[in-house]
Amino acid sequence: MRKWGAILVLFAAVAMVVPMVYAFELDLKRLGDALKGVTGKKSDSSAQGLGLDLNDVKNVLTAARISEQDEIRIGREIAGNLLGVAPLVEDAALQQYVNKVGRWVASQSERPDLPWRFGVIDSTDINAFAAPGGHVLITKGLYRLLDNEAQLAGVLGHEIGHVVRKHHLDILQKSSMIDIGKDLVKDRVGGGDVIKNLIGNGAEICARGLDKNAEYEADRIGMILAARAGYDPYGLADVLQAIGHVAKDSSSIRLLFKTHPLPDDRLLRLGEAMGERLDTMTDVLQLRERFYRLKN
């Protein structure tokens, strides 16, 4: 009877602590100590005596926290696969320009020191992709729709929003929560590349898309980051307007519409969220003259 009671208490303790770990990235060693305290025993062996391996508990909890280093490795896999579908546009001046704008916008976010990388990929598709750890890719088809630097800042800001809020990691965790933490730990020890097996083909996540609320959130962040960077905050809205005017049945926009809410809804949500917030902003810039135009 006492044994069952102890198991129940342990279970309750784990259930209470899991969300805390997720929210505050609680230290695992302290968690282990805490569990010992709850069971009233002194060592790991006691947990084993209850038929529970404390290491298993730790692994489950590790799943919820992915280190920045692992985040970058996961992002590398996704971005590298995307580049396998469409390489970078061969225009060094363009790529440097996009990196300067992107890094400036990302510098206004709560994660300014990630190794941010921006690229324009050679595809007529109209789309942009983010991958964990600071990877942002935008298609040539979308870039071609832009007319000034503020609009570029808005688009990059939306993708930066996905990275900052770890939207892709959330999806990965939901789909394979236990394995991820476990295998990443194994991977660090073994030095092998387990990430590939973990996330399958990394680029696949871009085909599945995120949930609608993540997209609305990224829109809000994109607009605010552009504003913080000194740009006309309505650049992203300009681009949503333009996207709304591309024929719905065009193959170039099919994936974007499959993975994102419709532009009208996105504009409406932005309007509701922003209200009067940006009305008093002055001296914002569009920088149309400086905007880098594609050569072909």
């Binding site: 590398r76 579908v85 390489p87 970078l88 890094r103 020191d113 921006f118 193959s251």
Partner: peptide, 28 residues
């Protein structure tokens, strides 16, 4: 033809392009 699900599922990691992407990064 746009970027579609099939292409994304069968994509292969491109080392050379990834190295280029890294090279274009700029500091704060």
């Amino acid at each position: 033809r746009g970027i579609d699900e099939e292409q994304l599922k069968s994509a292969q990691f491109n080392e050379r392009e990834y190295a280029k992407l890294e090279g274009y990064g700029v500091s704060r």
